[in-house]
Design a protein around this nucleic acid. Sequence first.
DNA 1: TACAAATATTTTGTGTACAAATTATTTGAA
DNA 2: TTCAAATAATTTGTACACAAAATATTTGTA
Lengths: 172, 172
Amino acid sequence: MQSIKGLVLKGLAMSSSMNKKKTIAEIMHSLRRIFKAIQQYSEEVLKEFGVTGPQLWALRTVYVEGQLSMGELSRTMYLHMSTVSGVVDRLEEKGYLERTRGVSDRRVVKISLTKAGKKLVQRGPEAAQGRLLHGLESLSPKEVQVIWSSLEKVVRLMEIQDTKATFFFSEE
Amino acid sequence: MQSIKGLVLKGLAMSSSMNKKKTIAEIMHSLRRIFKAIQQYSEEVLKEFGVTGPQLWALRTVYVEGQLSMGELSRTMYLHMSTVSGVVDRLEEKGYLERTRGVSDRRVVKISLTKAGKKLVQRGPEAAQGRLLHGLESLSPKEVQVIWSSLEKVVRLMEIQDTKATFFFSEE
DNA sequence: TACAAATATTTTGTGTACAAATTATTTGAA
DNA sequence: TTCAAATAATTTGTACACAAAATATTTGTA
């Protein structure tokens, strides 16, 4: 259906003398394709396990971290609290999560897994990571390391600009 | 508001002896944060130019590629056609794009920029790329190259699994 | 020629994803 | 003590993002 193979080969054919501007455009494309692949994987997870990628990710986070507040969950997942609120709604409806009000502070909502939720996490794949995970597993530790440090560099570049809006529009 | 700086530093503190599984989890986090940074940037663009990141990206694509069909536009943007259909709807309402039916094949819809659309692209930043672009510009060509090839590797790993679903669940 | 299969786009329905507004509760200062 | 500010979570409104179904048109074939 998609001519992905062709596109990948086109990417590989680029020489190392490719100029910076073009490389940057390619980087954006790569990121876009990674997001798309993650979303497509989410569909597969939905068909097999009845929950979406983000939902499985939330379950997995609670499984790993233990009981969490909404704020903690959203910070751990790097998602806006209102987004997480909706995800938790759907997981609660499905019977995988429970909300309980905090005892000492009644503003706080504590999220915990039900028995069914725990079971699902144990038999399910590693959330959205699944596909990427199995790909990365096949690489050497060194290769994984290089990919990680590259991504960290990109993250720093993007997040640093939050604090340095002044320098945002530099000269061409 | 966000404690992003702290998180970045935590990432940097990791030693190279970090095991593969942890590194992979970090890679997922990095991707997630890149995604979030792009979306936050989209908000800024919206406030300044009245169009969202994806909308500006679509305009820019038509600007660069010239008149396009919906199919061509969606393939170029790596987005589902139904998604692009909605984005084009909103840009048409705002008067930046026009739809025209194909002459030889009346199923095809041709997308082209209006005068206002052209003007906006010329004065606007480089769509979602903007923030990343300015960050990457500050690196050496070699560094940019390493980041690109890492991302390409990730893309290939994820997309290859579309065709090789058989090997999907390998042993631990 | 007739009409089924293929193709291009839109519509429908679900689920993120965010900001801004709202609600409920707690904390701190006059 | 009182009540405004701060905090935690939810609700509301907009815009992606996708698959599946529907619509319109063209192509190929009997």
